[in-house]
Design a protein around this nucleic acid. Sequence first.
DNA 1: GATCCGACATTTA
DNA 2: TAAATGTCGGATC
Length: 918
Amino acid sequence: MNAVEIEEAVSKLAEQPFEPQEFPFAFLEAFGNKATTIKRLRSGASNKSDVGGVLQANNIHLAVAKLGAVTQTLGALKASPQTAKAKVKFILATDGDLFEAEHLDSGETLACEFDNFAEHFDFFLPLAGISYVNELRETAIDRGAARRLNRLYVELLKDNPDWGSEARRRDMNHFMARLIFCFYAEDTGIFHPNHPFTSTIEKMSDRDSSNTDEVIGELFRAMNTRKIDHEAAGIRNWARAFPYVNGGLFGGNLDVPRFSRIARSYLLHIGSLDWTKINPDIFGSMIQAVADDEERGALGMHYTSVPNILKVLNPLFLDDLREKLGDAGDNPRKLAILRSRMAKIRVFDPACGSGNFLVIAYKQMRDIEAEINRRRSEAERATDIPLTNFRGIELRDFPAEIARLALIIAEFQCDQIYRGQQLALAEFLPLNAENWITCGNALRLDWLSVCEPTGKGGGKIYADDLFGAPLDQTKIHFENEGGETYICGNPPYSGYNKQTAEQKADLESVFAPVMKRWGNLDYVAGWFIKAAQFIQQSDGAAAFVATNTICQGGQVPILWPWIFAARQKIAFAHTSFKWANLAAKNAGITVVIVGIARGSNDPATLYEEAIEGIEVRQVTNINGYLAPSANIFIQAATQPISSISKMNFGNHPYYGAALIISRYDASEMVANDNRIAEFVRPYYGSAEVINANPRMCIWVRDDQADQAAAIPDLKRRFLSVQADRRSKPSDSTATTLVKSPYRFRDQVESSSYFIAVPQTSSENRPYLPCNVIRAPAVASFKCFAIHDAPLWNMALIASRLHWVWIGTVCARLEMRFSYSNTLGWNTFPVPTLTEKNKIDLTRCAEDILLAREAHYPATIADLYDPETIPDNLREAHERNDEVLERIYIGRRFKNDTERLEKLFELYTKMTTERPHSG
DNA sequence: GATCCGACATTTA
DNA sequence: TAAATGTCGGATC
């Protein structure tokens, strides 16, 4: 069961009348326990309770109390020896009136009326093995709201096709933003409770919906007109009860699209949702999906989850604020100093989307400030944290609008929580007309002018329109004289060979002035450069979520030397973790978080996912590979830096797909015409090596071209290749190859065998896959090959040292290994090998092959399954590592960290003593 | 001329 | 439907 399903089940349970006998079992069932589990508990077979309740070992001990004795029963549960013995996570007691529970691990308690317990279902999610607790409940509602808004949006576009045009798109977006504001306002008391927005529309508009647009338009007009002018403006009586909102929200074009009956009923339906529960953290992202063609299908695929946002914000500056809060204790002066520091902090998200990072940062800071005010006995004090210190840049106009709306709502919610409903309401309307979210291209804008350095620049400029103000209207003075700026966000990623022409041009504008050879960098790297440039001018730090490849392979020696030369360091980092949010479909990507700050001798903090949770380490330095080691850069090399054999890239078909055939097709072709046999060879890529299951290819040497073309089955395939290559007129290589359609672009073969190294392979194996492949088989471009070379080369590839090296300095596909000859093999530092060393290593490689042979026909995939790797094979690898590691340091390495340290050290030594060009 | 990497792509359990 | 695990193209240096 997922969280949404659990919420449904719990709500259903809460609606039913309370049955003391049944309740414990029904509760467990709602959290996904199987019928058999419950049966065994019911029968008493597995029920360990010693206080007359129900105890499920390792999970929960719950009991139904006598009326009025809930607290007492909970105490008994807590004191029960069985509770401790059975390692219970939760205790729970209820009498059908009150409901109390405690999470024993954290000590968190829950007390509510029985009727409301379903609202707290997330408290118990660990029971179902779900631990990403905080955001779930809200998100279920946010997603529901987003889906309904999406339906309304689509329906309105159906009825008003012109509103979907480029010219009117912004009107449509404005309209949706206004609606969202109204829904929120009517549920939170911003509108007078006697005059709800939704039911006014329902009452005043005809059932056939013919005048729905006019009714809404009139309400909008009221909200755009000061109270005293309502009469003069001729606002209809039924609309006069609505307040003056404006702040730009209802300024400008007040057109309303026409509503069909279906659209009207969607509208009323959305209004009936409980919008007080909407969580501006996430709802912005959901809402933006409503209007975004790209996002609509995925519904929020790219929004950053709250836990991940906190992985950025906490180490960036929130942890420090909390630490200072702790240090200040109850000292009023220290608390006031912290408060005034916070009032000057700017948070700047140059890829803000609908403002999630800004909203979370704002809410977290308000929480800290509220604690300060509480300790200083100033609970009702207005906040000192200006909303305008939370700046953003966003490319698309709708999210930019939503970002501001989300911040406004966040401010209102914080005022409600920390200062009370009355004060919150009193100061809310009319909305401030400033616009502090810039709609524009972050890589093209001057961040210093969007988020100007402290204390400089002109006076306040108000945007005449709340939304999407032109750039020159965004120079709003910061109220942060002497303050810090924290840059954060989750900018878009795009690899160099997937970037659009526009994106390339964006990057060029950033990189051309500062470096050459930037063409292999990911799009997100542009944000790091601009952030580094910004921090050089201003107090603060920056941290982004980014694709992990910016800290891997070829990108490291391009991007990070520049950042470090700009006197920045990696102040903290979170190593690779799989992207996840609660959207139905997640982007398939693995990300890192990297925080940069001005260089200093302070320790850096390295976060790594571990089974127990997130492991945190203080280290002296974090390098561009996110390793806790010196700043080292592995440059791709065209020749090995060590005395090892040359490794070739495999044979690239280059639109020669028709030359690659299955084994079945190959035997059919040969059966059809025996002359073909001579031209067919086994063809090994990654999967073929790993699974010992080659495909076949047509392999024709230049001097055999005519002979092969005379065979009809081959000729047909050559023509197909020719056509494919001809279809790429802009590709000079393809054009050249049109003349030789009988062959791959590359044509390298071995005379007796080659050592094959798969290009992509699973990260779960304890050693890299490799094998000896005999001629006449050939390597595909998914497989690297050392042709007819001594076998001790394979001993190196099969070693744990190489596994560590490749895993660190080559790129990865998500977490998969992605082997590279230039980055991984040619750079692999190997001490000078004596003849004796080579003989020993050759023996080790032979032993590995023999150990595998003993399990014939098991494949590499079978043999290297980490769970079931055979003992003899593991021992052969151990001996191989023993021999090789003794060559390095005269003993075995203690662990992979030590291996990497030594390799980095040796690499540095070898490349500086004997400089390598390339 | 050679190759790196994928806000992935496809297969498998 | 989630988990496992590697295709294939094509821009870049």
